[in-house]
Each structure stands twice: as structure tokens, then as C-alpha cells.
Design a protein around this nucleic acid. Sequence first.
DNA 1: TGGTATAACATGGTATTTTATGGGAATCAA
DNA 2: TTGATTCCCATAAAATACCATGTTATACCA
Lengths: 161, 161
Amino acid sequence: MCTRKILTMRKSFLFLDTVANKVDAKGRVSLPADYRAIVKELSTEIVCYRSLTAPCIEGCTEDLLEKLATDIENSTDFFSETQDDLTNLIFGDAKRFSFDSTGRIMLTEKLLKHADITDTAVFVGKGRKFQIWSEANWAAEEARLREKIKLNRPSLKEESK
Amino acid sequence: MCTRKILTMRKSFLFLDTVANKVDAKGRVSLPADYRAIVKELSTEIVCYRSLTAPCIEGCTEDLLEKLATDIENSTDFFSETQDDLTNLIFGDAKRFSFDSTGRIMLTEKLLKHADITDTAVFVGKGRKFQIWSEANWAAEEARLREKIKLNRPSLKEESK
DNA sequence: TGGTATAACATGGTATTTTATGGGAATCAA
DNA sequence: TTGATTCCCATAAAATACCATGTTATACCA
């Protein structure tokens, strides 16, 4: 409630945190309350699509896709042909999801299957976007990321010593 | 109180000092008054996440993360793999914390555990960020830091002698 | 300068509100 | 009808706002 008020005044629209919510028999999942606050504030909608690179669902506000589309329109050189292809894939796959009065969305079979999600959906904030993972896949992914950071930033390793 | 006035007039928004506050059974801790003044002044919120390099919690204003999100957006392309990994780690772990009318935030189990905090949280200012340590871990860390400085800057050793 | 009144703060406790989640009725399409 | 989707209600747990108190720090005055 406090959050909502502050979001009303400011412009901070970051998807944060990691939340695990249950997927019930009907396929319903609660969108984390913080995420809902963002959607309401921006008067936009949630859009989800299969991640192109990982076994997870990716989501963002429709606003962001709008921005992406505009960027592509306006600059021919900024986006490579490959990226253009990727964009087509995303737009083709993306679907709009609105939540009911209790804050739940209903993910499709296609998405759930791509992410190996059966009974629990893990929402992972990514700033302007977020991802939805199965518990097992996310555990593996997080481990991979933390390992990678250690290797790529020896200076950090040094500091922690 | 004097602090607040100065903050109002100047643009000095540094987290300073070291303050030890109690963590109650529910995980509530008073955010140091000076820190709260900064948050209010900037009309932002506090965001905390597990330090990547040390057994402590790290915190900053949401503004700072906003800036980071924008920088990442602009510096790399929409589909960059590095961007993907980085954003997952940072934003996925970060959580927004708003304090109640008495100035307390409620830290999560995950964060407290990472920092070995049970009953006392030590807030350590770091300028734009701050850290939260357990008493024991902070004592060790401070000793380590002071020792390191001595070795790296013999001139200081000379003076203190 | 010293002493006292005042305000701010940390902290324990309690009440109220959100939120996640299960289940049922209503709506709609095949 | 059947199967699925949307809407609404109920509830338990968790998060949040609010109240009260002792203590400390600050401001004020003699």
C-alpha cells in the first residue's frame, strides 16, 4: 500500500526479487504483488513469451515491447539483421496476460512446458523484464550465474578474501 | 534533526557512520535515522541484496538501481547475453524495503542468513551504498581492512607509530 | 558552563490490511 | 453436454501500519 503510493509519485519501475508462487490445478498463478503494482501504475499489461536462450518464460510490460518496436523502426543500423529476426520471433510468440481481481494470470500450456513448470513458478526480477522458472531450473541457473561472476571478476574475489 | 536540515539544503547523500541496531523476532530493524533522512529526501526507497563477495547484506537507494538499469539498457543491446546474466543476478536478488512510521524495515530470512545475523545488525556506511553485518563478521572485517591499510600504506604506519 | 526541558530515537507489542491460494458459480465455445 | 475460462467469495498466513514506553541525544536557559 505504501509501495503503491510511492510508485504513484515516482518513476521507479523495476521488477525485483525472486518469488515462488504456486500454479494451481487450473493453471493459475499469482503475479507477485510488486509486479502488479507496476502494471497498474503504468496502465499497461504483462506480456510473456518463451525465452530464446533459456528454459524459462520471459515477461515484461507491453510498454517495453512498444519501445523495442519503435527503436527498430527508427534505426536501421542499430539493430543487426539477426536481432531483427530475434525480434520477429519474440513478437510472434508474445502473448498478453491480464490478471483477475485476486491478481492471478493463467499461463498457457506452451509456456509452462517450455519452462518445465508443473506446480511452482519462480518469478525472477530483471529490472525492466522478469523471468519465470521452474524451481529446479532456476536453482541450476542461479548456481551457474554465481559461479560465472566469480570467474569473470577476479578483483571481486580478491576483495572478499 | 540538524542532519535533516543540512540534507535539505545540500545535495550530500552519503551513507555514513556505523550503527548497531537490534533485530527482533520478526526480523524488524530500525534503519538508522540518518539513512531514513536520505531516503525521504530523495523520495526513493531502500533496496537490499546479498553481497556477491562478502557475508553481509548490501543496500542502496532504488534510484541507484534505476540508473544501473538504464545504463545497462543503453550500453548493450536488447538481446545481449552478458546483460541477461548480470541483470538476473542483481535485480533477481534485490528486494525493495520500505520502513514503517517508526522507521523499521523487515529483513528477509534469506538476507539475514547470508550475513549470519541473528539479533543485532550493524549498519556500515559506504557512501552511495551501505552494508549490514553481524557483529562478529563486522569485527573481523574491520580488523582485516585496517590491517590491509597498514600493509599497503607504510607512511600511515609511520605516523601512527 | 552546567543543568534541565524537550524532542528524537530505538524497540516491544498489537491491530489492521494485503496477499496468496483454494473452491464454487457463472459464462462461453465447441 | 463437456471442457475450459472468467469472476467472485472465503480463509489462513504474512506483511504492514499504528500505539506505547524507556532511553538517549539535542536544544534551551540560567
